[in-house]
């Protein structure tokens, strides 16, 4: 397996606060990689550095073999990276279907002028995006909400819309930030099924969470604590590791 994402010696500081201290790990193509850690471990900062929302003070992010440390969010999106947010960021005034059409944006070519002049390729692209959106609505069980503004959906459904929107972009690497927070137990089960299916279809997933139950779908995990990776391995190895137990489980 080759590395889809390499985090190399990444350090980050906010003023005098070192939130990340030389973090290195890789996400192998085809894997589901988990990143766990207690609150304040630096998970969100690391996640923002990987997705392009922050530039690290030191270190490099290598995406698909290319140095992406200083590339913008949109550039990484075009390279095939998608992320979700800890608080779901749906396009509130847009219907669920329109949210997913927006998710397909990187597949299209037409711009402002073509749309303004009503050229036929604009309608063609719109039709293609609508087909993809409708398939995703089916798959993520959002049928009843298709034409409802996404902001009016319950939190769990908004998470699904956000996930569906990331998936229709056909990412090579899907990064999920606390995807199970705010979901009911039943919804978490559905989420895990969906993620397993996506992985079987070849999508590489990076999962950042403190939800151990969700980590059952991962093939490899890294535990982050006070800005350092303190352990790596399978879920069982993690559960057995005294350092992880001490830092994370508090026993």
């Amino acid at each position: 397996m080759s590395a889809l994402l390499e985090v190399r010696e990444v350090s980050h500081r906010f003023g005098g606060l070192h939130v990340l201290k030389g973090v290195s790990f890789t996400v192998e193509a085809g894997s589901v990689t988990g990143l766990i850690g207690p609150n304040g471990a630096g998970k969100s900062t690391l996640f923002n550095i990987i997705s392009g929302f922050l530039t690290p003070s030191v270190g490099r992010i290598v995406l698909l073999g290319e140095d992406a440390t200083r590339l913008g969010i949109q550039h990484r999106s075009r390279m095939g990276l998608q992320r979700t947010f800890q608080t779901p960021q749906v396009f509130r005034d847009l219907t669920v279907r329109e949210n997913l059409v927006a998710g397909c944006h990187r597949h299209g070519r037409t711009g402002v002028l073509e749309a303004f002049l009503g050229l036929p390729q604009v309608r063609r692209e719109m039709r293609d995006a609508a087909i993809v959106a409708d398939a995703a609505i089916e798959r993520f069980d959002l049928g009843p909400y298709r034409d409802v503004p996404a902001g009016e959906l319950p939190a769990g459904r908004q998470r699904m819309v956000e996930l569906a929107r990331a998936v229709v972009a056909e990412p090579k690497l899907l990064c999920l930030d606390e995807p199970s927070s705010g979901l009911s137990t039943a919804e978490v089960q559905i989420l895990m099924q969906v993620l397993r299916r996506l992985n079987e279809e070849g999508m590489t997933i990076l999962l950042v969470s403190h939800d151990m139950e969700l980590m059952e779908i991962t093939s490899k995990m890294h535990a982050l604590c006070f800005g350092e990776i303190i352990a790596s391995g399978s879920l069982d190895a993690m559960r057995a590791s005294p350092r992880v137990r001490e830092a994370y489980l508090g026993t």
Binding site: S51, G72, Q89, F91, D93, E98, V101, A115, E125, M126
Partner: peptide, 26 residues
């Protein structure tokens, strides 16, 4: 026509949630 096109949807998307719009490649 512009408003109904994918570009129009992209505009409304970035008005609603700019960070998520950037992730979508807009």
């Amino acid at each position: 026509l512009l408003l109904r096109s994918r570009t129009g949807i992209a505009l409304r998307a970035m008005r609603d949630a700019p960070a998520a719009a950037a992730v979508a490649g807009i």
